[in-house]
Write a protein that binds this DNA or RNA. Structure first.
Length: 506
RNA sequence: GGGGGUGUAGCUCAGUGGUAGAGCACCUGCCUUUUAAGCAGGGUGUCGAUGGUUCGAUCCCAUCCACCCUCACCA
């Protein structure tokens, strides 16, 4: 049956209720229990025949002559309810008869066990709390069309309990991180999302306009530069849960709006940060799963043993036998070409090393592994390595083949920073849309002196993917970015308008 | 951006060059401890959009749109 007809039928019921002084959208309902609490205390409540009041959405309904069985679901769980003519009387029985799957009701009654052994609420009276005009997806097969699930997440959440669970875990993960950082003495702070100048990463920003000042503004691509200002200001440990925005493509691993945590720790270096990060992940995993071993796709990820720490050059040597550390650029290119890594973009030693690493090492990183000491050419924000000028003090953590963290001993020499900004500015002028513009005030801040500092950023969405065994970022973001719907789709509001117009005419 | 796939009823899906089907949902009736309840009956659709071929297109062709997978790019 077309949606318009189904909605018309339901809308007509609302009008009939209205004629009988039954509210379709009343204001509140006093519950005594959430469903899971009632079930947890079932034996006692059933024995005493305690009157309880539950509320929820009707998910399933079966008529059995002069009685009904239905399943009602609330935020905590689901329970069967039983309603019979002899108990509730004609009016309530008729009202229940007209209810549709998806309607929200409140029920008063007592608990009992049916012949077939199901714990059930025997309804003594009920109230309609909200009439649903739109039909629910199929009661058995649910909603499987991914597009519909993303576009109408509410419907997805109503019928797919595992989706609900994934997002509860997302929330728990963030809370666990917050608790951990709090216990480590990190201060949670907030910095501007709307920025006159963007920076802290290489990405194209979203642009907007502030009319009062008549100037263009940007949505932040990273929090780095503001958080470092706070370190300069004298806080030792700060972090922020950041919504960041990057004006780039979207795919399995990218959404234009995404979440990161960035943290900065004064008087510490990247090794300190790695140890802290490792401790944090181990605790979070255990808090969420009660174990250190979790499945991800075909793999089992084990967070318990010390995470492997290996330099980028060391990992390449391990996988290929090639030691790039002492090679000139020319020799490195030849060595890379020998294993079929070539390309015009390999314009310096660091790029060659990175390319070989990406092809030969990155795909192998399933168990938690720190890759350390990246070439300076590919790490414009990190401090040079104290023992090797070709490298920087930087690590990335890889889990299940995904980058799940990026950290440096932070650059704090204002002259060095200024020079890098100049270089970026030149790239920007030459058309590199991802280069970052000069941030004068940030250089100014650095001239006041930033203590030696370790900084870490990690993507929350990807971390949640790993910890919930999801393989698309869209399955861990409630409302992922979607393109506009094409022609041929009729908005529900249009159907509803027509129904109401017809009512007024008749 | 390249390649592959999908798009048919509210949902899950069949199907055909001659104007379309099933299950669920919905409507009517029977059934007072059922449970994907059952039984009997009923209605139905811009077949993603726009063009083309054809006597005739949901089907064949072209273009476009959305979604999924994949490669590339980017982080």
């Amino acid at each position: 049956m077309p949606l318009a007809e189904l909605m018309k039928i339901r809308r007509d019921k609302v009008r009939e209720f209205s004629d009988k002084n039954v509210l379709s959208y009343p204001y509140r309902y006093e519950r005594t229990h959430l469903i899971d609490r009632a079930l947890a205390d079932f034996d006692r409540l059933a024995e005493k025949e305690t009157a309880i009041r539950l509320a929820g959405r009707i998910m399933l309904k079966r008529k059995m002559g002069k009685s009904f069985f239905a399943h009602m679901r609330d935020s905590s769980g689901q329970i069967q309810i039983y309603l019979k003519f002899d108990v509730v009387g004609q009016d309530q029985f008729d009202l229940f008869n007209t209810l549709d799957l998806g309607d929200i009701i409140g029920c008063e009654g007592s608990l009992f066990v049916t012949k077939t052994g199901e714990r059930t609420l025997r309804v003594s009276s009920f109230e309609l709390l909200t009439k649903a005009l739109h039909p629910l997806p199929d009661k058995h097969s649910g909603l499987t069309d991914k597009e519909q699930r993303y576009r109408r997440r509410y419907a997805d959440l109503i019928v797919n309990p595992e989706v609900r669970e994934t997002f509860i875990q997302r929330s728990q993960i963030i809370k666990a991180i917050r608790d951990f950082l709090d216990s480590e003495g990190f201060l949670e702070v907030e910095t501007p999302i709307l920025q006159p100048i963007y920076g802290g990463g290489n990405a194209r920003p979203f642009q907007t306009h502030y009319m009062r000042l008549d100037r263009d503004m940007y949505l932040r691509i990273a929090d780095e530069l503001y958080l470092k200002r706070l370190i300069i200001g004298g806080y030792d440990k700060v972090w922020e849960y950041c919504k960041d925005f990057r004006n780039e493509g979207m795919d399995r691993l990218h959404n234009p709006e995404f979440s990161m945590i960035e943290m900065y720790w004064a008087y510490a270096d990247y090794r300190d940060m790695a140890a802290l990060f490792e401790k944090m992940l181990r605790e979070v995993v255990h808090k969420i799963h009660g174990t250190y071993k979790i499945p991800y796709g075909d793999h089992e990820i084990d967070f318990e043993p010390p995470f492997k720490w290996i330099t980028m050059l060391g990992s390449i040597k391990e996988q290929t036998g090639i030691d790039f550390s002492e090679m000139s650029y020319e020799d490195a290119r030849k060595a890379a070409a020998d294993i079929d890594v070539e390309g015009e973009e390999l314009i310096n030693w660091g790029k060659v090393v990175e390319a070989v690493w990406e092809v030969r090492v990155e795909p192998t990183l399933i168990q938690p592994t720190f890759i350390a000491d990246f070439p300076v050419e590919i790490s414009p924000l990190a401090k040079k390595h104290r023992d090797n000028p070709r490298l920087t003090e930087r690590f990335e953590l890889f889990v299940a083949g995904l980058e799940t963290g990026n950290a440096f001993s932070e650059l704090n020499d204002p002259v060095d920073q200024l020079q890098r900004f100049m270089q970026q500015g030149k790239a920007l002028a030459e058309g590199d849309k991802e280069a970052q513009p000069l941030d004068d005030d940030f250089v100014t801040a650095l001239t006041y002196g930033m203590p030696p500092t370790a900084g870490l950023g990690f993507g929350i969405d990807r971390l949640v993917m790993i910890l919930t065994n999801q393989h698309s970022i869209r399955d861990v973001i409630f409302f992922p970015q979607m393109k506009e719907l094409g022609d041929g789709s009729v908005p529900v509001s249009q159907i509803l308008s027509k129904i109401v117009d017809d009512e007024e005419k008749s």
